[in-house]
Amino acid sequence: MVRRRVLARQLRQLREDAGLTLEQAAPKLDFSVSKLSRIENAQILIDVHWVRGMLDLYDVGGNRWTELIELAREANQPGWWRAYGLGNNSYIAFETEARRVYDFTPLYVPGLMQTAEYARALMVAVPVARTPEQLDKEVAARMHRQHRLTSMEEPLELVAVVDESVLRRPVGGDEVLRAQLWHIAELAELESVELHVLPDGVGAHAALVSGFIILQFGELGEPDMAYVEHALGALTLDKEREVARARLTFERVLSAALDPAESLALVKRLGRR
């Protein structure tokens, strides 16, 4: 999904650089104006043959032609998450292409830090109809996501702020919580993970209403994205003004949280209890 958005943005820029409007370019490509608009807004899969025709029309050649054709092929490849029964528009499709994740979670452990038992307990508690097989696949997909925190080929950095109350909430029972706390401690010692705990004593703060995630895509050049999950669904925000507000809110929450060393010490102390 992210690569499709990157490709769509570049194709739109090439059309504009060629001095063509949607109305001028569409008939030359045997497209309707609405179809070309959907392509440029990443609303549909982009066929490689369409891209070839567009590059010819926009007089693009050489290495640039090769790069965009390869990007089109990559954008059409099924993501690993499809094997787990998850759709292309799921959050995982965006996180998979991200290089850094900023996650503030006030009610439960962030997905990238959960144990399988903790994740299963959370999913069972949500009133969503799942077969046992679907539940197993969703848990497995969540565990798969964590591999990137230790990957050399596709590294992912995580900056997580967790509310202290989360570390005391016995999701799945005391034994599951104890194992979860030690798992958090192990992850917090990775170079790719920066953990901050927001103490109970902070009181009201900038993100008291809900948690949220900010994704950064590094060299892909895709603008940052914010993601908010709530009890009835989820919301993706990609307008710069909205994402800028999310960044500011995260910075304010981060400034009120414990530093990584203090946070790790607190997690270990609770784990020993």
Results as ranks from 00 to 15, higher is better:
186 E>S: 13
189 E>Y: 00
187 L>F: 01
174 D>Y: 05
179 A>Q: 13
170 P>F: 06
180 Q>D: 04
167 L>T: 07
187 L>K: 00
171 V>F: 01
199 P>T: 10
164 E>L: 12
199 P>E: 08
159 V>E: 14
168 R>T: 12
181 L>D: 01
172 G>N: 11
173 G>N: 06
191 E>F: 03
192 S>F: 03
183 H>D: 02
193 V>K: 04
193 V>Q: 03
200 D>G: 14
177 L>I: 05
200 D>H: 11
165 S>H: 12
158 L>M: 12
199 P>G: 10
192 S>Y: 05
162 V>P: 00
195 L>D: 05
166 V>N: 07
166 V>D: 05
178 R>I: 03
188 A>M: 07
166 V>E: 04
200 D>V: 08
201 G>E: 14
188 A>H: 01
179 A>C: 06
201 G>D: 13
163 D>S: 15
164 E>Q: 15
184 I>W: 01
181 L>P: 04
188 A>P: 06
191 E>V: 01
170 P>Y: 09
191 E>S: 14
160 A>K: 00
162 V>G: 01
178 R>P: 05
164 E>G: 13
192 S>A: 15
176 V>Q: 04
188 A>Q: 03
198 L>E: 07
175 E>S: 13
199 P>L: 09
160 A>I: 02
185 A>N: 07
176 V>L: 03
200 D>K: 10
176 V>Y: 02
199 P>N: 10
191 E>M: 02
190 L>E: 10
178 R>G: 04
181 L>Q: 03
165 S>V: 14
187 L>V: 01
168 R>I: 05
195 L>K: 10
189 E>D: 12
173 G>F: 07
180 Q>W: 03
169 R>K: 15
182 W>S: 00
190 L>C: 10
163 D>F: 11
189 E>A: 15
167 L>H: 08
184 I>Q: 00
180 Q>C: 05
178 R>L: 06
177 L>S: 02
170 P>A: 08
171 V>N: 04
171 V>H: 05
202 V>A: 10
171 V>S: 05
177 L>K: 01
188 A>L: 06
186 E>V: 05
184 I>K: 00
169 R>P: 06
183 H>P: 05
164 E>F: 12
158 L>T: 13
178 R>Y: 02
197 V>K: 02
169 R>I: 08
186 E>Y: 04
174 D>V: 11
177 L>W: 02
179 A>D: 13
171 V>I: 15
162 V>K: 01
192 S>W: 03
178 R>H: 15
161 V>F: 08
170 P>L: 10
